[in-house]
């Protein structure tokens, strides 16, 4: 196994999805010719509303769903022709809680490892369970565990064969804050070991905090794939807030410009601007303020969150 440096444009894709579409038996089209490349060692967040096709896409790569058209390659190998090779390098944590309630934790993990044809390795299983704070529960039946622990068992099962690519489908849905933090620490550790992680989430903040790149999917189409930081810079609108020394009743006519509003309390001016524009209008605004004799006590800028960008995109406004 190679441990190359995480992400980088020159790295070959570990997962290549080309022209993949899926129409279910009932006639519902879940995916429309999706193209996507995932780089080695990155954390990729697939973002989209319910029914956008996220789970279908993951299902196709992992062998649960048959694609109607298109090709998927994992480390250059076709997922149908070389399914043994491709599946052995993938770990999947599905969205639904899918466990055999009467199995013990350690047995469940050992079973998952066995299915992948790997020899029994108690030391590895112990490491996985310890990393997920499940070691103390190893002899408990799954039905006795809390919801969060069950979810971690599913992660442990997915890691039991030490995959290179891990799919996490809505991993933190219904998980409390503390556990979520713990889960992200596990993800971070995996990234440090050179693993590639593809996750879907509704918690857009998580994608923003965790992901190197974000793909937005809407109605079965990938609308956008971008480095998280670039996306923020590229699409993010910023807001400049000017705290005024003295209250105003209205925006003075001399200052009136698109995007400038007075706060309700009258003690601050908000100016929305586009960072992508050639001229943001900030210089002019500040000059006009000076000319109009409006004193500014303080100022700050705020970038719109990924959530706002996301709403823009899936709403079709952008």
């Amino acid at each position: 196994m190679t441990h190359e440096t995480p992400s980088g444009a020159a790295e070959p894709a570990v997962l290549t999805i080309k022209g993949v579409s899926k129409t279910y038996a009932g006639g519902f089209t879940a995916l429309k010719s999706v193209d996507l490349d995932i780089k080695k060692g990155e954390i990729f967040a697939l973002l989209g509303p319910n029914g956008a096709g996220k789970t279908t896409l993951i299902g196709i790569v992992c062998g649960l769903v048959k694609a109607t058209t298109g090709k998927v390659a994992v480390f250059g190998h076709d997922i149908d022709g070389d399914y043994r090779l491709t599946r052995s390098r993938i770990g999947l944590v599905p969205q639904e809680m899918s466990i055999d309630m009467f199995t013990k934790v350690a047995d469940a993990v050992a079973y998952a490892r066995g299915l992948f044809g790997k020899p029994s390795d108690p030391a590895w299983v112990e490491k996985v369970l310890r990393d997920l704070s499940l070691w103390d529960k190893r002899n408990e039946q799954l039905r006795t565990l809390s919801g969060g622990m069950k979810r971690r068992v599913m992660i442990a099962k997915a890691l039991s064969h030490d995959p290179d690519i891990l799919f996490l489908d809505e991993p933190t849905a219904g998980v409390d804050v503390e556990l979520r933090q713990g889960m992200w620490q596990v993800v971070e550790k995996l990234r440090q070991r050179g693993k590639t992680i593809i996750l879907t989430t509704h918690y857009i903040q998580e994608a923003e905090e965790m992901a190197d790149r974000v793909g937005v999917i809407r109605q079965g189409e990938i609308v956008l794939v971008e480095e998280t930081a670039t996306l923020m810079a590229k699409l993010g609108r910023k807001q400049l807030t000017l705290q005024l020394a003295e209250r105003l009743d209205a925006v003075p006519e001399a200052l009136a410009v698109e995007g400038l509003t007075l706060s309700e309390s009258g003690d601050a001016l908000h100016f929305d601007y586009d960072t992508r524009a050639d001229r943001t209008g900030i210089t002019t605004l500040l000059a006009n303020l000076n000319a109009a004799g409006v004193s500014v006590r303080d100022l700050e800028t705020r970038q719109s969150s990924l959530e706002e960008i996301f709403v823009d995109l899936v709403g079709g406004a952008s």
């Binding site: 992992c62 062998g63 649960l64 399914y83 043994r84 090779l85 491709t86 599946r87 052995s88 993938i90 999947l92 599905p94 639904e96 809680m97 899918s98 466990i99 055999d100 309630m101 079973y111 998952a112 299915l115 992948f116 044809g117 099962k157």
Partner: peptide
Amino acid sequence: YFPKFNGTVYELLSAPIS
């Protein structure tokens, strides 16, 4: 049927097993 019922059939389908 049981793995189908409780959802764990995903393990079988996503494993490198014929």
